[in-house]
Structures are given as C-alpha cells and as structure tokens.
Amino acid sequence: MSPTIAAMRRLLTDLEPLVLEIEDQSHRHIGHAGAAAGGGHFDMTIVSPRFIGKRPLERHRLVYDALRSLKGPHGFHALSITAKAPDEI
C-alpha cells in the first residue's frame, strides 16, 4: 500500500467507512500537469453511515474535508469519489 493511500485510510476513519476502496490511477495520467507536479490520481469508493440523508455534493465535501492535508504535490492531485450510504449498496 502506498503512503498516500495509507494516509487517506487513516484520515477517513472519522467517517466510519463500512467499505473503503482506494485505487491509485496515477499511471493513467503520466504527462498530465498534476502528475508532473507530483500529485497522484486516485479512484475511491466509500460507504458510510455518515452519508445517510446527504446529497452527493455534501458527501464529497466530507471526504475532501477529511483529506484536506493531502491535497497537493505530495498527496493527491485528483480524486474520483463514489460515496454511498449503507442502504444504497
């Protein structure tokens, strides 16, 4: 597991994820400006009871707020998020 994925997993524990899958997609973005600056591209699926009653944008904000310290050249440049409540799986 990469250090960035390990840090993401640690930072997302407050969301009490029932499912948390994170895939590094950086190899698909070689040559992209964000990749050249060092930030990775990641794909995430997260299922959390904290998402119940929240719209997709609110769910994404919760994830981005939790990962704020990793945004940038030493963490991630892009993040694709699938965020669901437990009753949606």
Results as ranks from 00 to 15, higher is better:
residue 1 M to T: 15
residue 2 S to M: 10
residue 2 S to K: 14
residue 2 S to R: 14
residue 3 P to S: 12
residue 4 T to N: 14
residue 5 I to N: 01
residue 6 A to C: 09
residue 6 A to Y: 04
residue 7 A to M: 10
residue 7 A to S: 15
residue 8 M to Q: 02
residue 11 L to Q: 02
residue 12 L to D: 01
residue 12 L to N: 06
residue 13 T to H: 05
residue 13 T to V: 09
residue 13 T to F: 02
residue 14 D to Q: 08
residue 14 D to Y: 00
residue 14 D to R: 03
residue 15 L to P: 09
residue 15 L to A: 05
residue 18 L to W: 03
residue 19 V to K: 09
residue 20 L to Q: 04
residue 21 E to H: 08
residue 22 I to Q: 00
residue 22 I to H: 00
residue 23 E to G: 13
residue 24 D to N: 14
residue 24 D to H: 07
residue 26 S to Q: 06
residue 27 H to P: 04
residue 27 H to I: 12
residue 30 I to R: 13
residue 32 H to D: 15
residue 33 A to S: 10
residue 33 A to K: 11
residue 34 G to P: 03
residue 34 G to Y: 00
residue 35 A to K: 11
residue 36 A to L: 15
residue 36 A to E: 15
residue 36 A to W: 15
residue 37 A to V: 13
residue 37 A to P: 12
residue 38 G to V: 00
residue 38 G to I: 01
residue 38 G to T: 02
residue 40 G to Q: 02
residue 40 G to F: 03
residue 41 H to V: 12
residue 41 H to W: 01
residue 41 H to R: 06
residue 42 F to G: 01
residue 43 D to Y: 10
residue 44 M to A: 08
residue 46 I to L: 11
residue 47 V to W: 10
residue 48 S to L: 00
residue 48 S to Q: 04
residue 48 S to W: 06
residue 49 P to H: 11
residue 55 R to Q: 10
residue 56 P to H: 00
residue 57 L to E: 02
residue 58 E to S: 05
residue 59 R to W: 09
residue 59 R to E: 01
residue 61 R to D: 04
residue 61 R to C: 08
residue 61 R to L: 02
residue 62 L to P: 14
residue 63 V to W: 00
residue 63 V to L: 04
residue 63 V to D: 04
residue 63 V to C: 01
residue 65 D to C: 12
residue 65 D to I: 12
residue 65 D to S: 14
residue 67 L to H: 00
residue 67 L to D: 02
residue 67 L to W: 00
residue 68 R to F: 07
residue 68 R to S: 13
residue 69 S to I: 08
residue 69 S to T: 13
residue 70 L to F: 08
residue 71 K to S: 13
residue 71 K to Q: 14
residue 73 P to V: 14
residue 73 P to S: 15
residue 73 P to D: 15
residue 73 P to H: 14
residue 74 H to Y: 11
residue 75 G to K: 02
residue 75 G to N: 05
residue 76 F to P: 02
residue 77 H to F: 07
residue 77 H to I: 12
residue 78 A to Y: 03
residue 80 S to Y: 08
residue 81 I to C: 06
residue 81 I to D: 06
residue 82 T to V: 15
residue 83 A to N: 08
residue 83 A to E: 09
residue 84 K to W: 11
residue 84 K to I: 04
residue 86 P to K: 04
residue 86 P to C: 03
residue 87 D to T: 15
residue 89 I to P: 09
